[in-house]
Amino acid sequence: MTLTDTTEVARSSAENMHYMPAQLTIPYTLTPGQATGIFIAELVNKRLLGSRHGDEIIVPAQDFSGSTGEPASGFVEVAPVGEVQAFTTNAKGTLGLVLIDGTTTPFLHKLVGFEPGSLEIGTRVAAIWSESPTGNSVLDLAGFGPIGEAGTFEPKSDPEGLAEPIEQIDYTMTLDFKHAYGAYYGTLFDGVETGRRIRGSKCSKCRRVLLPPRAVCDSCFAPATEWADVADTGTIQASSVVHIEFLGQRKQPPYVYAEIVLDGASTRLIHIVGDVDAERAKTAAAPGARVRAVWSDQHTGSLGDIEHFELIEE
């Protein structure tokens, strides 16, 4: 079988099998820095702070002016009212650029509480404070709404009694992906799922077998046009004994991390060697040791279909 027609060998058993969904959910603790840290901390006090950089007054307060790079020379407290310079509405709501009275750079935030069609460039707006502030989010200021009776005042330099800057803000970033199997992983994992068959592709130049299979050889850049069967036995090329625990770990330590070259392949596969005592593993599951795949009861079409590798006792 050759790989010339890539569409035919694609994982075609079901439409959704073209993709493997993957989600990265990453927790962070982010430090906003002095000015933004104080700016956010003061929102629960319903105070709006700007930073002064030469002639510029920027809200929300910044450590550095993006226009000049100049560090903040001090803070100013500004009236939480201003004028809309631009706005846009989408399915999530309305965002607007609000030039806070006495400042030089508009503040981009949500605009809330406007009747359809009532918002115009030049509309005067006032802060809408969150009813359930968290103390660590710009959303403690819910946005800007109709001005109503709100008054204004000149920016007050060097306001007294500023809060300490927030040192860290918890944040979770979630990224969703649907990774295409493509023809090569598709064929490999179809074989793994249905027949426990492992196949690589053979380079037309160096004749080495690539596992995972690829269209071109990673070394020669020559076409790898032939399928080649690879055994489910192999040799440990490198191994270590895992004791640490970390987010998203698949197996409870201790266990053996191994890079295995399967018989018939010229590249490595990353897996686990199971059923071996951590101390004994140092010698028994060392580089050079022979291993065999222990197939799982699951048929998922992934490397996880191999439960782990076991040592072939000579």
Partner: peptide, 21 residues
Amino acid sequence: PFTQRPIGLDHESAAALYGQR
């Protein structure tokens, strides 16, 4: 991630703010 990302700004709304002006 502190003042621009949490308010729901996306590339389309940013382009639209330029667009309106």
